[in-house]
Computed example of a mutant assay.
Amino acid sequence: IPGQTLLDIPATPDPPRPDTPPATTQAQPWPRLVNGIWVPEPGSDQELPGLDPIDPDCTNPVVADRRTRAQKLLDGLIDCIKLAARTGKLPMNGGLKPQLFISTNETELQRRTKDGRPGGIAFLPYSGPQPLALLEEELCDADITTMILGNGENILNVGRTQRFFTDTQRKILIARDKGCCFPHCRRTAMTTDAHHIIPWSQGGGTDISNGALLCTVHHHAVHQGLWSIELINGTPWFTPCYKLDPTQTKLRNHYHHGLPGT
């Protein structure tokens, strides 16, 4: 246009992009309901519902959840991964589902510490020698294939893969325990492992009278020696270690059974 510079030409606004929300739309306030769970604003450090498995009405300090918030968030993520792995719908990894390869010998299997826990060594392909005691929890509820090696690492026998707790046994444990059987724990049955009360490595049988459903947090606590379990008339009862409770009063889960508890 004669007599006009580029600066004199009024700018034409860009047309709105189809993925741009209208200016009048306001962001949904926090907390927000996501898949039925109220999620606090990121970075607010507000507690996420469900991270603490203990019944909020419980007044007994012995069973209090002593994990930090960071530990709770990590354990929650691990629970999600374990739950997804149980579905059987994940893609195959190199032709095999995720597996843990443990190599050891009879001498190491029989070695015990003073408190009766496994004291031997296992050899893992990706992390080298590790204490067998670290693997007790993984051996509670797993598919096990036993391979017997002779001199010179010759394979003498490869046994059939054995499911420690069968699907039928887990259904019976779910009907009995209805969820994690730790005192005042609210975790549902689908987030639990089937725990050997007498460890399999110490000759404990894989049967209902030696099984109990435990969530990840309380499975760790039992294997760390903070709590011991015994079945009394078919009900799992827990005894805290002396450090947690000098009276070592036995406790059981009331939450899943609609019974009063403190």
Rank of each mutant, 00 (worst) to 15 (best):
A142W: 11
A142C: 15
D143K: 07
I144M: 08
I144Y: 12
T146I: 12
T146V: 13
M147Y: 10
I148K: 02
I148L: 10
L149V: 05
G150F: 06
N151W: 01
N151P: 10
G152H: 01
N154L: 13
I155K: 04
L156N: 10
R160G: 15
R160E: 15
Q162S: 12
Q162W: 09
Q162G: 05
R163K: 11
R163E: 04
F164T: 14
F165H: 11
F165Y: 14
D167F: 09
T168F: 06
T168R: 14
L173H: 08
L173V: 11
I174Q: 10
I174P: 02
A175P: 11
A175Y: 02
K178H: 08
G179Y: 05
G179S: 01
C180Y: 00
C181F: 05
C181K: 08
C181I: 06
C181T: 13
P183Y: 06
H184G: 06
R186S: 09
R187Q: 15
D193K: 01
D193M: 06
A194Y: 07
H195V: 03
I197Y: 08
I197P: 03
I198N: 10
I198C: 03
P199A: 07
S201C: 12
Q202Y: 00
Q202F: 05
Q202N: 08
G203N: 03
G205C: 02
G205V: 00
T206N: 02
D207H: 11
N210Q: 07
